[in-house]
């Protein structure tokens, strides 16, 4: 399978990428690792006229101590996140979740920024980013702005990024002593989560889910129950409340709702112990 024809532009830095987006508008797509975009282009589910390759902007591949947070460049590959000693110490859930993405060859190419910007409700990394309450930094023609993780995912494969904006950095709070858990349920090696649940417990407890709606999401019902003093078991019982899980050959809504209750129970058990 070969993608439809396109013009290829290599951007040397973020400003050049944003200039190309501004010039070509909706016809252009950024390509980071290409590990979501190329499969879609091969099936011709997307046919950009212009591909702007940002994959070699090395300045945007870093994991730095930013004081109260860890700053991660958007072009940082999954393998670098997974093996980062700084992240293992300061936000271990993120390194752990990165290690559950696809397989090693996928993790050598795919980037954290690409995974978030793609906005796939089934992808793993958004769960960690939501449960950590990270901040995303976007750059556009008029400068830079910060977006809270909970405001970032707006619809199926849609995010708060404007068409001329690029994700440049992800800021993850340091939570070295927090309890955490990631429960990914799938049935085949290297597969996506049928349902995934991330929990971070640091005083209060944040719970995020993947593949339980149109977007990766924070579980309002579980978090409210916990804040109101419910036990972990009672909080897990409301895990599917108010949600419309997708239905596909892996499971219908009822099955996913059941999985969500079980996985939230396990995640809370691990994170809050």
């Amino acid at each position: 399978m070969i993608p439809a024809s396109f013009d290829y532009v290599e951007a040397e830095n973020a400003d050049a990428a944003i200039a190309a987006l501004t010039e070509h508008g909706d016809e252009a797509k950024l390509m980071a690792g290409g590990h979501s975009l190329i499969p879609l282009m091969k099936f011709r589910l997307t046919t950009p006229q212009v591909v702007v390759d940002i994959g070699r902007i090395n300045d945007l591949s870093y994991i730095n101590d930013g004081g109260d947070h860890i700053a991660i460049g958007a072009l940082t590959r999954h393998m670098a996140v997974e093996t980062s000693d700084v992240l293992k110490a300061q936000a271990p859930i993120l390194a752990h979740v990165a290690s559950h993405v696809g397989d090693p060859s996928v993790r050598h190419r795919g980037t954290l920024g690409g995974s978030l910007a793609h906005g796939d409700p089934a992808s793993d990394l958004p769960a960690a980013i939501l449960a950590l309450n990270a901040t995303l930094v976007a750059k556009g023609p008029n400068g830079q702005r910060e977006i809270s993780a909970s405001d970032f995912f707006t619809g199926f494969l849609e995010t708060a990024l404007a068409s001329d904006e690029m994700l440049t950095e992800i800021r993850v709070p340091k939570v070295p002593d927090a309890g955490w858990s990631y429960q990914k349920f799938n049935r085949r090696a290297q597969d996506w989560a049928i349902v995934g649940v991330a929990a971070v417990s640091n005083g209060s407890t944040n719970v995020a889910m993947v593949n339980m709606g149109h977007t990766p999401l924070r579980s309002a019902a579980v978090e409210a129950a916990l804040a109101g003093g419910a036990s972990a078991a009672d909080a897990a019982a409301v895990a599917a409340e108010g949600l419309t899980p997708p239905e596909d050959l892996n499971g219908d809504a009822e099955y996913r709702s059941h999985l969500a209750r079980v996985l939230v129970g396990r995640a809370l058990g691990e994170a809050m112990s």
């Binding site: 399978m1 290829y8 290599e10 390509m31 290409g34 590990h35 190329i38 499969p39 091969k42 591909v51 390759d53 994959g55 393998m79 397989d103 090693p104 060859s105 996928v106 050598h108 190419r109 290297q190």
Partner: peptide, 29 residues
């Protein structure tokens, strides 16, 4: 498979395994 799943197309790019059906030649410049 041609769909990024089977790994038959694995090569090394700068020493790391990559599925060459899921990368543009242009990205390997």
């Amino acid at each position: 498979c041609d769909t990024s799943s089977c790994g038959a197309c694995t090569v090394h790019i700068d020493g790391e395994s990559v599925k060459s059906c899921t990368m543009l030649a242009a990205q390997a410049r």
